[in-house]
Design a protein around this nucleic acid. Sequence first.
DNA 1: ACACCGATTATCT
DNA 2: GATAATCGGTGTA
Length: 196
Amino acid sequence: MSVIPTSFFLQMDVVSLANQLIGCRLNTVIDGKFCSGIVLETEAYAGETDKASHAFGGRKTFRTSVMYKEGGIAYVYFCYGMHYLFNVVTAVEGVPHAILIRALLPVEGIDAMQSRRGSKVKFGQLTNGPGKLTKAMGIEKSHNGLLLEEGHIWFEKTSEKLVGDIVATPRIGIDYAEEDALLPYRFVWMPSEGHK
DNA sequence: ACACCGATTATCT
DNA sequence: GATAATCGGTGTA
């Protein structure tokens, strides 16, 4: 298990990075509670040329200013009036690439996740969506722009081998992106048969 | 299993 | 004033 340094996110190929994050651990220490989960689903947002990106066409607003910073920080934004979505900003300063984390497999801090999500929520529903996992992990707007370092919000590589395959599909919920809605920028871990 | 739809508000036009 | 990188409840089967 090794902490992923913020410099890892300076890579310029955001689609490759989104693929590479599958199987890594996302960890948080928030409100004194340690939570950890394996990244199962990501989406790449490829900056100014990607019609699905908030920064499409070079839009610089208060919200997107975080995306233009140097890679290795969190981009957390409020969606549909009720959910926080967590992204990793990637690439060098001035290039607004980001990766949305869409699903996790809970590993540690499951009690904390359960109490944040509500006692009625089943284990399989704790972190199987981008708005659900931020709530379970304790991520919200105060974390926007935060450097991804050990002890607060950070990623780790594990030596455990992933049993299954990573498949690429079109992204979810971006019908407004016209032809870019079809790009295979979503990565999902599919367990192999017999390892469900 | 799957389709539909209402909630709720920051952000941008 | 419209939109939105979602979620969970309700309905039909």
